[in-house]
Every structure is written in C-alpha cells, then in structure tokens.
Design a protein around this nucleic acid. Structure first.
Length: 831
RNA sequence: GGGCGAGUGGUGGAAUGGUAGACACGUUGGACUCAAAAUCCAAUGCUGGCAACAGCAUGAGAGUUCAAGUCUCUCCUCGCCCACCA
C-alpha cells in the first residue's frame, strides 16, 4: 500500500521544484497565450478566500493552455499607489513605501501557497520608479499631443480624503472610498481629454469584436452616454446675445414656452454684471429686474452638494430672469428665461428649452404658472390626448406633430431631421452629438502617487509657463518626506518640500517650481499589462516586437467593479498608445471574464468589520492547496456571487483522496486492457471532451463534476490501467496541480506533467453501445428502454408496446401519434 | 425612472426544447471498530401507500408544442449598474 495523501509535504515540494525549473516559462513556443488577472492593491489585511477565485481560474486556464501547446504569459504584480495605501500608512504611522513592501511580501507568500504559475521574474510594482518612469513618459506624450489641460473649474472635492476626485470616483454624489458627501470646489487641476476618444471607446466595443460580458459593455456605453440631437440658438430679445440649447427632442420645439439655464451658466453671470448690451431705443442699459433674487438663488445652488442637487425626489425650484426674454427660433415668439438648479452646467450647453413634453419642465411650469403648449400627439388613445391637450397630463413619448406649422402630421422621428435642416438654413441650429462622459480629472492633492512631470516657470518677470520635464530626466521620483498628511488647502503635501519643488526651468534655465499634484490611483494600471511583456526594458515602455507577439491579452479576469474606471481608462490610454504607434492593437483586452464575489457564510461581504473573514492560509493548512483550489472552482458558476462554505472543501478533499487511492488499483501500462473496457474508455473520452470545453468556457464547476463522475466509476473497477489514469491526471492537473504532478511522477514519468500533452477525445468513442430511451405516454414518463445505440423507430416501438407498463397505460386507448427521437425518447400520444 | 441579470430539493448547484434535481454538502440507516475518526454500502424533491405504484413539482398566471426549467406574453420578488443627461 502506498503512503497516505499528505498535501502539506507534496505541495511545498512541487512549488519549489516548479519555480526552480521554470517549467512555466515556455515563451519560445510558437503560439502565445496571454492570460491576465487584474493585479491587486496589496492591502495590509492580506488575502481572504474571496480574492483568489479569479487567480485560480486564470491559473487553471494558464496550465490548460500550456498543456495544449501554447507559450503562456501569466504574470502578477502590484497596484500599490493611491489613497488606500496612503491611508493605511497614515493610520499605522509607517511610510507607504515601507508598508507597501511589507504588504506585498504577505500577499506574495499567500499566493505562492496556492501554487500559481506566475512568472515572478516579471513581477511589477507601480510604485517602483523604474516602472512609473514610463507612466510619466506616457503622460508627457499625452501632454505633447495636447491631451492634457489645466482647468480651474469647480471639481469634486472629498473633504475627508482631502483631494479632488474624478467623476468616475463618485458613487451617488459620495466619495467612492470613504462615503463622504463630495463638495464642489474650484481647484487648479490637470485634466486628460478623454472625451476626444469617446466615440472610439464606444464604437470599438462592437467593431473590435470584444468578447466581454454584454453587461459590462452596456455599462461602458451608458457611461460614455452618447446622444444625438441638435444645438439650437435662442437669441435674447433685442440683443445680439444668444443662449445655446442642446436637445434630443427638437420635434417638440414648437411647444417650447420657456428656456432654463443652469446656475453656473456664464451668461447669467454676464447679465448680472451689467454687461448686457441692449439696443433699447430709450437708452436703458438693462431691463433685468430681479437681479438680487437671482443672485440669491445662484448662491444657494452653489452651496448645495451634487448629492442634494441631484436628489430626484426634490421639488423643482427656479427663478425667472424677469425682464429678459428669448426668441423661440421656430415660432419666433418671445418666451421667458428661468434659472433652475436641476439643469446641469456641465452637460450639453448648460441650458435647455422647456415644454409640456418633459416631466420636469411640465412640473416646474405648473408650479410657477409658466405658460405651456403641446406639439406632440400620442398615437391612438383619444382619452390620453384629451388630457394632454388640456395640460392635465404630461406626455413624454413620441407621436405625431401638431401646432407645428409645416411639420404638422409628421412623426417625431420624421420631423427631427427636417426641423434641424429648416433651422440650420437660417443659421439657428445644427446637429450635435453629446456625451455624458467627462474629461478625466487627473490630479490628486496627495503624496502617494506618481509625480506629474511638469514644471511651472512663471517668475514675476514672466516665464515660459508650464513646461514638460525632459524625457531624459524621467523618472521624477517622489521625494522622501516627514509628513505626508494631506492638507485642507488643496495643495499637495509635496508643496512643502522646497528642495524638491524648486528646479531649473528646462527651457530657460531660470528658477521654476515642480508641479506638486500627483496622478490618480488608476494611472499605473492603465498600461501595466504591456510592461509584463518586457518588464526590464530601459529604452522603451515595451519592445515593439515583443508587444506585437504577445498582445492582445487573450483573456482578462477580474471583478465587475472596474467596468467604468480601470477598463475605460486603460482602453483610452491604449488607444492613445496605438495612435502614437507605441502598440500595434486597437484594443488591449480581447476577452474579459468577470468573476462573481465570494461572500461570507452569513451572506455579507467578507470584512474585518463583520468578523466573517476566512483566510486561505487556514484552508490550505487544513485541507491542502489542491482541495482549496478545486473547491473554489467547484462551488458554483464562476461569474456568479456565492457564499463561502467551508464544509464544501471537505467534499473536494474527499475527491482528491479517492484519486490518490486509485493508485492501489493500477495495473501496468496496457493499452489492450483499456480498450477492452469499452464503456470505461467511452466515459474517459466524454470526460476529456467535457473538461476541455468547460475550461474554455470558464464552466469549471461542471468540468470538476465530470471528473468526479469518472473517478467514482474508476473506484468501482477492480483495476485501472495506468494509461487511462495518466490521461485523467492531465485533466486534473490544471485544478489540482500538486497532487497531479506527484501521482504523475509516481507513474515513472521523469518530466513535469505540465510538459505533457493535453489529451484529445475521439468522437467515435463518445458513443456508448446502448442508449436509454425514455418512453412517454402523453408526455409522461412511463418506462425507460435500454436499446442498442442507433436503433430505428420500428424496433423501439415494438419493444415499447411489448413493455407491460406501457401496455397498462395505453390499454383501451387509440394511438394518435408516435414521436421518436433516436436514442432519446419515444412519445406515444394516446386518447 | 432606465439598463442588465437571476428565481429549481434541507444547502451549493446540473440540465443542445426530449428521463428535472447530475455532481457535491448535509441528514438518516447499515458495515468495519472495544470505541471514535476515516472509509465503504444504502436511502434522501413533496404528498399518499407496507409495497408495487400513483399524483404533484423548476416564483405566479396564460400561450406555442407530441414534449417547456428552457421559447412567447403578462405579472411578482430579489440582485447589480446607471440615474434631474434635456
């Protein structure tokens, strides 16, 4: 009898051996396969059992692809810049650099225990100057192409994190990290012109045939938020001033009875500042009557947070600009102008025209007694039209135009292009595409990030302005500081370090100052997948030849939480790199798979706070890494959220024990014997097919259940041929690599199982000799017949009618119809 | 309000329109053992019945079909994402 299964001993042994021999580094192979995890932020808490789910899946795929003959790139690294690392460091009074190093060591040790194929020679760390040199390099290229600009517009400011945030960092008006309500704060900041790529980011989701979950693509589409409409000019009566309005419903223009502008709209400020050129014959400068009221309203709106302003349940408020009117370009009527804070300054033109066909406009008009008109008649439903016409109900849908001059009778869709054309000819409107997506607010007023490689040369006498750091001077390293506490002033803590801040201007050599803002957390992860291909390169961010060979990433695995940030930012940068010919593909990630979250046994998220965290180290100590891996893949569909259940690991450990015990049934290599047992041979081939196809589709749970079925059968056999057993071990090896390698070697194999060839199934052997045909009478199962595979209808019918159970159910009935599906079912319709 | 998913035993979950509940956990009974653990064998959707068997069953209701967890429609519930975007 062989010795008992002892995962502890064999797992450590093989992990060492694999790493020493570099068995996974088969990069010379002709066909490549790049399988990538979303690299983690190394938190101080270490891994819980939820984290490795995705890593185990990519490891299964990586091993499977290597066995299938590919040269597999499967790297790992650390995304260690950003607020979480800094806050952890602040709280624990350790410099981020030190704590990050320590956390990485913990993570790495934990990951190693699970037995991954990661090529640690390619490990990267976004906080390493040798890495962020290239993050800064890309920034400079963006700068040179005019895709970086300085802005002083109010931005989202988190009072607790003390930094500006991008739109993508907000969750319902709150800071995504600390849940503080975000304020608007005017702050100097650097912004990336991501909107210039909006259209390509949208289109390439489809044109580049990305194999991503439809839900993620849809989230990106919604985020980009493209809409087609028109920009329409409303002249301010008796002046040459105009208000531009964006609309997707120009078919309703004839019912536009007022215009609403956002409190931030520059024109309002202009009107308030007496810069209102009129041409009134009596020489009056302005007829704006209620300036104070308007000023108060705007001041109040500014105080509100976005959370308050966008509260849907809030009643609409607004103030009329009394004495000001604009001209509806379609009707040429004078209509009033209102300011209301539900109109957003940043979207479209910051102004809209209002009518009875929009719920918000309708409600506001009713509240303030503003006149309304209708111009769209809903199809059918006379009762509805009655109410709409009497302004009792708001109709927001499309319909037929009425009270719209020459456009009467057209449908909304027909009317839109015609109205735009008509107005365009008079210079009053043009087609316009709008996006919800904003440019990317790229500066953070914090310490722990990549320094932005710009220099301000503006001495009182006048200087060069903002100047880029020379490429040869990269990286701009983060200086060592004593205090990296964020400030309330909107200044980065870096601003206090005179030694670092004061530099010579690269252009005029005069004294200048460094930019002290740092890049956001997401910068480093925008291109890391490229660096893995060529991590030591000092001449370029990646060697073009190698990039061409390895890209795109064939399969990318990670959580859905990155749908509109990392995945959008990375695609944006990648497209830019494509434009400057630094990479050869338009899209970086060909296939994207999102793992479901692993929840705690109590159904909540695993968190220290709830005390429900399960540590993988404990699971491995108790059950072994292989049982742990197999359980994580077996517990449920990969993309679905699921609660952890330690009892389940018992089951996969038992399965591996069974596999181990099969050794006692082994008979020496005897192909003949294997072939004699036809049903077993057939089962093996079915298993090969199932496991192969399921791994490709990330259906690991059913792949494992297929292997369990095979093992349960093998257990029943008196003897098991070692040929069959060794093939099974290859199937098992991606999931449970250590035990598979151990058993493989004990068969006398000299080379690693991971240098073996993945078995192929023979379609001829999939067919068993007999088939079970279910006999239904009126759709109800009454008997199951065992027939020779491929039997014809007559044979099966004869057998069925001879069956006593069948006879009992059709006795005295008329047979109306018989349906036969070969080797599957015979349905008798009898009345 | 909009979009995307999902509702199947005690539990996690299987099921190209063709035997619903594979595989696993748990539970119950048995074998082995002085005993326990481990292991093995058997049973395990619900209802009735000693049993053979019958009936009912995939969130609810209708429809298509010889046949529906699967397709169509209506509704309910839950989850996730977005949301005053004009």
């Amino acid at each position: 009898m062989k010795k008992a299964y002892n995962p502890k001993a064999i797992e450590a042994k093989w992990q060492k051996e694999w790493e020493k021999s570099g068995v996974y580094r088969q990069y010379a192979r002709k066909e490549k396969y790049y399988v990538l995890d979303m690299f983690p932020y190394p938190s101080g808490a270490g891994l819980h059992v939820g984290h490795p789910r995705g890593y185990i899946a990519t490891d299964v795929v990586a091993r499977f692809k290597q066995l299938s003959g590919y040269g597999v790139l499967h790297p790992m690294g650390w995304d260690a810049f950003g607020l979480p690392a800094e806050q952890f460091a602040l709280k624990n009074k350790i410099h981020p650099e030190v704590s990050v190093k320590k956390n990485i060591a913990t993570f790495k040790k934990q990951l190693r225990n699970i037995g991954f194929t990661y090529d640690w020679e390619r490990e990267i760390n976004t906080t390493d100057p040798a890495y962020y040199k290239w993050t800064q390099w890309i920034f400079l290229r963006l700068w040179k192409k005019g895709l970086v600009y300085e802005s002083h517009d109010p931005i989202n400011w988190c009072p607790s994190c003390k930094t500006g945030l991008a739109n993508e960092d907000l969750d319902n008006g709150r800071c995504e990290r600390c849940e503080s309500v975000v304020e608007k704060r005017p702050l100097r900041q650097w912004v990336l012109r991501m909107t210039r790529y909006a259209d390509r980011l949208l289109r390439d989701l489809d044109t580049q045939k990305l194999e991503w979950a439809e839900s993620i693509k849809e989230q990106q589409r919604n985020w980009i938020g493209r809409s087609e409409g028109a920009e329409v000019i409303f002249y301010i009566a008796d002046t040459e001033e105009e208000i531009r309005v964006y609309t997707t419903r120009i078919d309703t223009i004839f019912s536009g009875t007022y215009v609403i502008v956002a409190p931030e709209h520059p024109l309002v400020a202009k009107l308030l500042n007496f810069q209102f050129p009129t041409r009134l014959p009596d020489g009056q400068v302005s007829n704006f009557q209620n300036k104070n009221e308007v000023k108060q309203y705007i001041a109040a709106a500014k105080k509100k947070t976005d959370l308050e302003r966008t509260d849907l349940n809030r009643e609409k408020t607004g103030v009329e600009l009394k004495g000001i009117s604009v001209i509806n370009p379609a009707t040429m009527e004078k209509i009033p102008v209102w300011v209301a804070d539900f109109v957003l300054g940043q979207y479209g033109t910051g102004a809209v025209f209002a009518d009875a066909h929009d719920r918000r406009d309708f409600d506001m008009a009713k509240k303030y007694g503003i006149p309304l008109k209708v111009s769209i008649r809903p199809a059918g439903d006379e009762g509805l039209w009655d109410k709409v016409e009497r302004l009792e109900e708001c109709f927001e849908g499309e319909g037929t135009l009425v009270h719209s001059a020459q456009f009467d009778g057209l449908t909304s869709a027909e009317a839109r292009p015609k109205i735009i054309d008509w107005l365009a000819k008079q210079g009053l409107a043009k087609k316009k595409v709008n996006y919800k997506m904003r440019d990317w607010t790229f500066s953070r007023q914090r310490y722990w990030g990549e320094p932005i490689p710009l220099i301000h040369c503006d001495p009182p006498a006048g200087g060069c302005g903002v100047v880029a750091v020379l490429e040869k001077d990269l990286p701009v390293k983060l200086p060592q500081v004593k205090s990296y506490q964020p400030t309330d002033s909107g200044e980065s803590p870096l601003a206090d370090i005179a030694k670092w801040v004061n530099v010579k201007c690269p252009k005029c050599k005069g004294s200048a100052k460094r930019e002290t803002n740092t890049m956001p957390q997401w910068a480093g992860s925008c291109w890391y997948y490229l660096r893995f291909i060529d991590p030591q390169n000092t001449k370029a961010l990646v060697d073009r030849k190698q990039e061409k060979k390895m890209m795109p990433v064939d399969v990318y695995v990670g959580g859905t939480e990155h749908a509109t940030r990392h995945l959008l930012y990375a695609r944006f940068w990648h497209k830019f790199l494509y434009d400057i010919k630094a990479v050869s593909e338009k899209e970086p990630f060909k296939r994207l798979v999102n793992q479901g979250l692993i929840m705690a046994a109590d159904g909540r998220k695993m968190s220290k706070r709830w005390g429900n965290v399960v540590n993988p180290d404990d699971m491995i100590a108790e059950f072994g890494a292989d049982a742990f891996r197999v359980y994580e893949m077996f517990m449920g569909p990969f993309t679905q959220s699921i609660a952890w259940n330690t009892d389940g690991v018992v089951g996969t450990r038992r399965f591996l024990e069974k596999v181990w015990r099969l050794q006692s049934k082994l008979i020496t290599n005897n192909e003949q014997r294997t072939k004699e047992n036809k049903s077993l041979e057939s089962l093996l081939h079915k298993t090969i097919k199932k496991v192969t196809e399921d791994i490709e589709e990330f259906k690991f749970n059913t792949a494992i259940s297929a292997m369990m079925i095979l093992v349960n059968q093998l257990e029943k056999e008196k003897e098991v041929s070692s040929i069959l057993y060794s093939r099974f071990l290859i199937l098992l090896s991606p999931f449970a690599p250590h035990i598979a390698e151990e058993l493989w070697r004990s068969l006398g194999e000299k080379k690693s199982i991971f240098l073996a060839k993945w078995p192929k199934w023979n379609p001829k052997l999939l067919v068993s000799e007999t088939a079970n045909v279910a006999v239904q009478i009126n759709g109800k199962l009454r008997a199951v017949l065992v027939v020779e595979t491929g039997s014809d209808e007559e044979t099966v019918k004869t057998m069925a009618f001879a069956n006593p159970k069948v006879m009992a159910h059709i006795e005295g009935k008329e047979i109306r119809k018989v349906i036969y599906v070969r080797d599957k079912i015979l349905n008798i319709v009898a009345v």
